[in-house]
């Protein structure tokens, strides 16, 4: 019975932890499917987390925070777009530049505006996206298994978690069932053909960057206004990179990416639960080793799956119109 309670708690925190990861991975997916490598997910998330926390702290509204977070992330996405599309610059250098810039800018502004050593004020519940209890969750909680899962695993998350999971079918539908999605995928595989068909590669790639910016903005906002209650220095803590790895593991496809994110989130939740626990035979694992788990898992997974084969063919290659 105790095992079952553990499992329920673990599943619940898996969904929580998966929220920013999933949104960022989908952002990376939209961007790379259109042919632009986006290693700046980390920076965009951090910027959104800071903007959202600041706006929420000032206005007292999580919605104002979310809007500010999305705007900050979209702005950075457009900068990355300008570098990658118009300037045909190196996309990895551009992404790293954004990550470094935000890592410095967010605490600088936080310090100047709030004078709290690079943090934003702690947000009260009215300025956060708080946990939502799904309809009938309380009445169903006594039903064995199904009720338990419904009320203790699925219910009780912030709205942004539900947005994250709903984004998966939406992104999949847009990519595979709409004309826009077809063009977006084509521009990542063979931009010359798209241009020949009379469709603007530049416009499509900018649209992809904006979608990625919005998704990444929600991801960052969820860090500081849903999972946390305010901005802390370096709070994205490598989630942007993990998201990128999850997307590669998910072979640039929405549903496998979801599964990869759930796996990473599960390991992350597990490492939280393992801290300070005596395991049979092994004993207590030092916390530094449990922290390594998601990163080691990523390396093992990438080693096991040759990721190159499924990458969009034009990904990372600047497009030159008059060749």
């Amino acid at each position: 019975m105790e095992f079952l309670t553990d499992l329920v708690l673990l599943s619940n925190s898996t969904l929580r932890v998966a929220t920013p990861l999933l949104l960022a991975a989908l952002a990376g997916l939209c961007s790379e499917r259109a042919g632009i490598v986006d290693i700046g997910l980390e920076g965009k998330m951090l910027a959104a987390a800071f903007a959202a926390a600041s706006a929420a702290a000032v206005t007292g509204s999580p919605w104002a925070g979310l809007l500010a977070g999305i705007m900050a992330s979209v702005l950075l996405a457009l900068i990355h777009g300008y570098v990658s599309i118009n300037q045909r610059g190196n996309q990895i250098v551009s992404g790293m530049a954004i990550n470094i810039l935000v890592a410095g800018l967010a605490p600088t502004l936080a310090n100047a505006w709030f004078s709290r050593g690079g943090q934003t004020p702690l947000l009260g519940n009215e300025a956060r996206f708080t946990e939502i209890t799904l309809p009938l969750a309380d009445t169903l909680s006594s039903v064995p298994v199904i009720g338990d899962v419904y009320s203790n695993v699925l219910s009780g998350h912030s709205m942004l978690t539900y947005v994250a999971f709903a984004s998966v079918p939406v992104v999949a539908w847009v990519l595979y069932k709409t004309r826009f999605g077809l063009r977006l995928r084509a521009v990542g595989e063979n931009p010359e053909a798209v241009e020949t068909a009379g469709i603007s590669v530049v416009l499509l790639r900018y649209q992809a960057m904006i979608i990625a910016g919005i998704l990444c903005g929600i991801a960052g906002s969820s860090l500081s206004t849903a999972l946390g209650a305010g901005f802390i220095r370096d709070m994205s803590a490598g989630k942007g990179y993990l998201a990128l790895a999850a997307m590669i593991f998910g072979r640039w496809k929405p549903v496998p990416t979801l599964l990869a994110c759930l796996l990473f989130a599960f390991v992350d939740a597990l490492q939280g639960r393992l801290q300070g626990v005596e395991l049979p035979l092994i004993g207590e694992i030092p916390v530094q080793f449990t922290i390594m788990l998601p990163y080691i898992l990523t390396v093992v997974i990438l080693a096991g799956f040759a990721g190159k084969m499924d990458a969009p063919k034009a990904s990372g290659i600047p497009y030159e119109k008059n060749r």
């Binding site: 790293m96 530049a97 470094i100 810039l101 935000v102 890592a103 410095g104 800018l105 600088t108």
Partner: peptide, 9 residues
């Protein structure tokens, strides 16, 4: 760090 980021960009 901000200046470095901008120079890199």
């Amino acid at each position: 760090v901000v200046i470095q980021g901008l120079v890199i960009l």
